[in-house]
């Protein structure tokens, strides 16, 4: 099988967000960037499938020059080669991002394209599914179990309070939910090998799409609350406050 994994470079989830001077983006100074956590599940699944059936795993990343590091992380985990679709800024419109990735995937002749279910920065949860539609491929999003036999697949998808069981045939697009697997850590040997693996860089031109950022702000501070007391003795006062002050029941 030839498998593509589409990955993204995002700020680490422990990042404390600061707004940049333009008021429309984050201040990236001092921010640690990582491979998007949901993409780790996609990479791991691709590597597991390769272990079963041989073939090739290619990581594709749309992002700035610095996203080479993100690709190297995937290569260190065991991905065979990387493609950086280099664009300094990603527009807000997921359709534009999806079009760029779809154009690259279309040329690759992949049996399967894996994505993380969402990127923890923009939180769109859209790009993988849009790519599938643009390529007229079957797709399942937020998958927690995937089984593939002879080009036929079944996936389990998380929905509110239940799971859906979906069947489809390859080629296809699948987006990974937490729980699909346990991503491996890159071993030292993997990190050394990754340095020598091929990484192609292609410049891409992205248009702005149909969404304009007016403003990025920090959420309003919650007005400060109060400690109603210590230990079990404080329970009556808490219940009283919830009932008569906050009126939540």
């Amino acid at each position: 099988m030839k498998i593509a994994v589409c990955i993204k470079r995002v700020p680490d989830t422990e990042t404390r967000i600061k707004i940049a001077a333009d008021g429309k983006s984050i201040d990236e100074s001092g921010v640690k960037f990582v491979l998007n956590p949901f993409d780790e599940y996609a990479v791991e699944e691709a590597l597991k499938l390769k272990e079963q059936s041989n073939g090739e795993v290619v990581a594709i990343c749309l992002g700035p020059e610095a996203a080479q590091e993100t690709l190297r992380t995937a290569l260190a985990m065991g991905v065979d080669r990387g493609i950086l679709l280099k664009a300094e800024r990603l527009p807000r419109d997921p359709l534009v991002v999806a079009r760029a990735l779809a154009a690259e995937l279309e040329q690759g002749g992949y049996d399967l394209a894996l994505f993380g279910k969402l990127a923890v920065d923009d939180y769109d949860q859209a790009v993988g599914t849009i790519v599938a539609e643009l390529l007229a491929l079957p797709s399942v999003s937020a998958v927690t179990r995937l089984e593939i036999t002879d080009g036929h697949a079944t996936a389990q998808r998380e929905v509110e309070g239940a799971v859906e069981l979906v069947e489809f045939s390859l080629p296809a697009v699948v987006t990974a939910e937490k729980g699909l697997n346990e991503p491996r850590y890159p071993a030292l040997r993997g990190i050394m090998l990754a340095k020598k693996k091929p990484l192609d860089i292609k410049e891409v031109e992205l248009d702005e799409g149909g969404i304009e950022v007016l403003e990025l702000t920090l959420p309003p501070d919650r007005k400060s609350g109060r400690i109603v007391g210590e230990g079990a003795a404080a329970v009556p006062e808490l219940v009283e406050a919830l009932r008569n002050e906050a009126k939540v029941f």
Partner: peptide
């Protein structure tokens, strides 16, 4: 059409103008 939406799981909030139609 202007929307607000949290990003970074709510660590920041975008105000976005949707310039494309439909959307």
């Amino acid at each position: 059409i202007v929307v607000t939406r949290p990003v970074f799981a709510g660590k920041a909030i975008y105000r976005l103008k949707i310039t494309g139609s439909p959307s």
